[in-house]
Structures are given as C-alpha cells and as structure tokens.
Simulated scan of single mutants.
Amino acid sequence: MYQQTLPPSSKTVLAILDTGGAMTHKDLVQKSRLAPRTVRYALKKLKERHLIIEKFNFRDARQIIYQNRPLNSTESQPALV
C-alpha cells in the first residue's frame, strides 16, 4: 500500500519501529545498521507522510523519541503521492 512509495531506508525504519516500539535516532541507527544521515532522511520521509510521531524524551531532553502513529478506525489513511 503506502509503503510502495517509500524509500527502502524508510521501510526499514518503519519495520523496526513496528517490532521494537518507540526508539531514539541512535537506537534506530544501531538496529538498522544504516548510516545516521540515512536514518534522518528515512525519518523525514516518514514524518512527511504522517506515519510516525515524535515525542519529547523526559530522560534526556537532547533526544527525540520516534514511534509509529496509531491508526484510529475513524481516521482515514493519508493520501500519498
């Protein structure tokens, strides 16, 4: 579906967040074995498509926690071009 239009790196990051739950950028780099810049690009593409959300990390304010956006039954899937 929507994953067909995503770059391979974004698909990898999305799959890691699906299985591993919320993670920081550093965690995603370690789990994916992708370059930090590639993970940043993947996160950017996922944010543009509203597939992930960013949360404030109360343990370390310098880091952001990324997680999949929960899909509500009343919420329609965003249009991807």
Results as ranks from 00 to 15, higher is better:
Lys55Tyr: 01
Thr74Ser: 08
Gln4Ser: 14
His50Cys: 04
Leu71Trp: 05
Val29Met: 11
Leu14Gln: 15
Leu71Thr: 10
Tyr2Gln: 15
Pro70Phe: 10
Ser73Cys: 13
Arg33Met: 13
Leu6Trp: 11
Ala15Met: 08
Leu34Phe: 03
Ile52Met: 05
Lys45Val: 08
Phe56Leu: 06
His25Trp: 02
Val39Glu: 02
Phe58Trp: 07
Thr38Val: 00
Tyr66Ala: 03
Val81Arg: 15
Ser10Gly: 12
Gln77Val: 11
Ala79Cys: 13
Val13Pro: 04
Arg40Ile: 07
Phe58Met: 08
Asn57Pro: 06
Leu14Asn: 12
Thr5Gly: 09
Arg62Trp: 00
Thr74Asp: 14
Tyr41Met: 06
Asp60Val: 03
Gly20Tyr: 10
Leu71Val: 14
Arg62Thr: 07
Met23Ile: 13
Ile52Lys: 02
Arg37Phe: 06
Asp27Tyr: 03
Glu48Lys: 05
Gln3Met: 13
Glu48Asn: 06
His25Asn: 09
Ile64Lys: 09
Arg59Trp: 03
Met1Trp: 11
Ala22His: 13
Ile53Ala: 04
Leu51Asp: 07
Pro8Val: 05
Tyr41Val: 04
Arg69Ile: 03
Pro7Gly: 01
Leu6His: 08
Leu80Arg: 11
Tyr41Pro: 01
Leu14Glu: 10
Lys45Leu: 00
Lys31Thr: 05
Val29Trp: 11
Ala15Lys: 14
Lys47Gly: 00
Arg59Val: 00
Leu6Val: 06
Leu14Ile: 11
Pro70Ala: 12
Lys45Trp: 03
Arg59Leu: 10
Ile52Tyr: 01
Ser32Arg: 02
Ser10Met: 06
Leu17Ser: 09
Ser9Gln: 07
Leu28Tyr: 01
Ile53Asp: 02
Tyr2Arg: 15
Glu54Arg: 05
Leu80Cys: 12
Thr38Phe: 00
Tyr41Ala: 10
Leu17Phe: 11
Ala22Thr: 15
Val29Phe: 09
Met23Ser: 15
Leu28Trp: 00
Glu54Thr: 08
Gln63Thr: 07
Val81Trp: 12
Gln3Lys: 14
Ile16Tyr: 01
Leu43Phe: 02
Phe58His: 14
Lys26Ser: 14
Leu46Trp: 05
Ala15Trp: 04
Arg37Asn: 09
Thr24Lys: 04
Ala42Tyr: 03
Lys45Cys: 07
Leu43Pro: 09
Ala42His: 00
Asp60Gly: 01
Leu46Asn: 04
Gln77Asp: 09
Arg40Gly: 02
Arg49Cys: 04
Tyr41Thr: 06
Leu17Arg: 11
Pro36Gln: 06
Ile65Met: 13
Thr19Glu: 06
Lys44Asp: 15
Gln67Ala: 11
Val13Met: 07
Ala79Arg: 15
His50Leu: 08
